[in-house]
């Protein structure tokens, strides 16, 4: 089955992973800007990173027939440095018209601090000013519930936000309903350590239904599995779910959400 991984950090993956994804049926990916495993020292470090996301990775992906899209921001962890964050936010518009840039992301919270919240709100302003969709990172482990509620408070508190153009990622059992009930898209991240398994993702699909729900692998530099979305497909098939339901979650929904961006030009496999 053709599928789309809507949240995978391919800058952390070797080229062989692109080949594996292609063999597993991956036809498109979107790569949000994230923390590189170390704090970058200047806005120019982010400029180079954004060039990697908008120029290098699309070419690497294309060699394997995979269409590459991306999101730009300064991630929540480095957003603790508000001065640096403001320099990066000021530079992002240089890249917003580049092919494949879908919007602003993955913005969010990490430790749910005041500085992270300030930078989140300033990213929201950037997205609103430039009419961009938003992809949001929610914190992990004990910080997730509090952080997700804080993020929803900030989004819901601004009437200019079009909720149909916002994806709140890394939802789990205790946050998924609040995100969907408030009208946003929700992403489930399949991750071997700190997030959720394909089995629990299938459980959540059964609990809330497939509307406005996406699944991704994260596939970052930590312990992760870039082929986690095919694992979910397999789990849903084993339970007897229809091909149409599976396709909706792993292919139709990402296409529908990405189409909220003026830069999403996707060519389905014929």
């Amino acid at each position: 089955m053709d599928y789309i991984d809507p949240h995978i950090h391919m800058v952390s993956r070797i080229t062989d992973d692109y080949a594996t994804l292609a063999r597993m049926g991956c036809v498109a990916i979107s790569e949000p800007a994230f923390w590189a495993g170390f704090d970058r020292g200047s806005a120019d470090g982010f400029r180079d990173y954004f060039r990697q996301l908008t120029e290098v990775e699309p070419q690497r992906a294309a060699q394997y027939g995979i269409q590459h899209f991306c999101w730009l921001c300064i991630n929540a962890k480095e957003a603790e440095n508000v001065s640096l964050a403001r320099d990066v936010i000021a530079m992002i518009p240089e890249f917003l018209d580049a092919p494949g840039v879908l919007g602003i992301g993955e913005i969010g919270l990490n430790k749910n601090t005041r500085n992270e919240s300030i930078v989140f709100l300033e990213h929201m302003e950037l997205a609103i000013k430039h009419d961009q969709p938003i992809l949001i990172h929610t914190p992990h482990l004990e910080d997730k519930y509090q952080g997700t509620r804080m993020i929803l408070d900030m989004l819901n508190g601004d009437s200019r936000i079009d909720r149909s153009r916002v994806l709140v990622d890394h939802v789990e059992e205790h946050t998924i309903r609040a995100v969907l009930d408030d009208g946003y898209w929700a992403g489930m991240t399949l991750y071997p350590v700190s997030k959720c398994t394909p089995q629990r993702a299938a459980d959540m699909i059964e609990m809330v239904g497939p509307e406005r729900l996406l699944a991704n692998s994260a596939g970052d530099w930590g312990p992760s599995k870039p082929t986690a979305v095919p694992d979910l497909i397999f789990e849903l098939r084993q339970r007897g779910h229809s091909e149409s339901l599976i396709r909706k979650v792993v292919y139709d929904n990402p296409r529908e959400f990405f189409a909220k961006s003026k830069n999403f030009r996707f060519t389905p496999r014929s």
Partner: peptide
């Protein structure tokens, strides 16, 4: 059960966090 367990292992959320942070 999974949702209740998640809540058990979660930090508390306060609705007036913005005023607490003076934000």
């Amino acid at each position: 059960r999974a949702e209740r367990l998640q809540r058990l292992f979660s930090r508390a959320y306060s609705e007036d966090w913005r005023s607490q942070m003076e934000l």
